[in-house]
Design a protein around this nucleic acid. Structure first.
Lengths: 241, 241
DNA sequence: TGAATTTGGTTGTATATACAAGTTGATCGG
DNA sequence: CCGATCAACTTGTATATACAACCAAATTCA
């Protein structure tokens, strides 16, 4: 295709790809033509088509995986992280989840991890609650929480209004501190059942420990389905497909 | 040069050039060997030598002029960069991780995201460092950090007590605030290479911005291999299988 | 002398080819 | 039903070659 005269061939292909991406003719995370297909289509060598794809990848427009193909990157990687943070704050403020369901509430012997986190002795009883959070009628997050029984008086005195995970956590006790760790994991069986996701879908897991003046109050796993995790429709954490 | 086995040829040449530049064996604005000369010297094709020069140009290490040659860029004071390197060495000595390796240290044109985060103009030079953190002889975390050059005096004036990554970050400047965003991502090529993980392994990415009273000091990506992430030796989260 | 041209070297673009490395899905055998 | 193997395809690296665009210095010519 002759675009403007003197236009470099690889630049022509770049322009073509960019136009497809910008008009959303090729949506986010969709697979785009391979190097060979582009080379054929534009009647150039593979290395020329490759260069176009390469440069667009460096610019964050595409991402590529050896053995698989080239894909349209999400605009997230190009837009400012600050914007994302503001969105996150906003969600925190307004309440992100529409519905929360308590599916289990028992007393358990304390697992080792929890014992360490709460400063309890191994196998001492802890209160265990399991809550599924929904968004748009879809199970989004599974919360497994362990509460220090010594702190239960505070805990039970609360009038639960489960709006956001943060509010829920805050309600337990006036936080003097809160630690958290976030990580990507594959779902365990429990999570799979409640969120109704395949075993292969990566999840986002947040481990949060809360404190009151009396000590560690609770320890919670908050596991979200990666493919469903959205913030205000802008930020989507989508590991793949 | 007997670089490690499996080293890509173009990477070998890049390393060579970088070493020459960093030791000032090739001073600023001096002309460096041509593509053909490098190709002969390393017994590779011109295109391979070219790739090394090309990538270093994109990273701001070199600049090139058609018909003339390739030259050492970096009008930034080399001394500051070297001092930052000393800090990295200090981390290595005292740090939380058993080993930390500085794999790259250059001045770069500021990427859009970083420009926004640090309040710099697009493509203004920033200091860029890339550090691999090890635990138990295993690469655990890749840190990509961008430092605001204007804040470097503060950065260097600190009396570092480097124990944990968090302390390391905190030590950069008296924080008036620190933002961070955590998300689950699939590793980019750089991360994959340094952490030696497959492309499919979900990673934990922490994006942290630090401030001093003078403004935004640094912006960092901390990407950890999900399957290797440990907390204090107690909590091990392992994605199963 | 001074301007135009040639010449040699350099980077830029493009092609054709080959093999390596990695993923996916189908096929086959127990 | 499950695992192993294989085939097809994709991206990654590398080579060899050719010509275009460009610059600088040497050469040539008025």
């Amino acid at each position: 295709m002759d675009n403007s005269v003197g236009q470099k061939k690889f630049a022509t292909i770049k322009d073509y790809i960019l136009s497809q991406v910008e008009t959303a003719a090729w949506p986010e995370h969709s697979r785009i033509p391979s190097e060979n297909e582009l080379a054929t289509q534009f009647a150039v060598s593979r290395m020329t088509a490759r260069r176009a794809l390469q440069e667009l990848t460096e610019q964050g427009v595409l991402y590529r995986t050896q053995g698989v193909g080239s894909f349209v990157a999400s605009p997230k990687s190009q837009s400012s992280l600050l914007e994302i943070r503001n969105i996150a704050d906003e969600i925190q403020r307004r309440g992100h989840f529409h519905k929360a369901e308590l599916v289990q509430l028992t007393s358990l012997p304390c697992p080792a991890v929890v014992a360490t986190a709460l400063g309890l002795s191994r196998n001492a009883p802890v209160f265990f609650s399991l809550i599924v959070h929904y968004e748009n009628q879809q199970p989004l997050q599974l919360e497994a929480r362990y509460v220090n029984p010594e702190q239960v008086p505070d805990y039970l005195a609360q009038d639960f209004v489960l709006q956001t995970p943060h509010e829920y956590l805050s309600a337990v006790a006036p936080l003097t501190d809160a630690e958290h760790i976030v990580e990507a994991v594959l779902p365990d069986e429990l999570t799979r059942q409640h969120l109704k996701i395949p075993a292969s879908e990566p999840c986002l897991r947040l481990t949060r420990r809360t404190f009151s003046r009396g000590g560690a109050v609770s320890f919670a796993y908050l596991t979200s389905a990666g493919s469903r995790y959205r913030l205000g429709g802008h930020l989507t954490i989508q590991p793949k497909t």
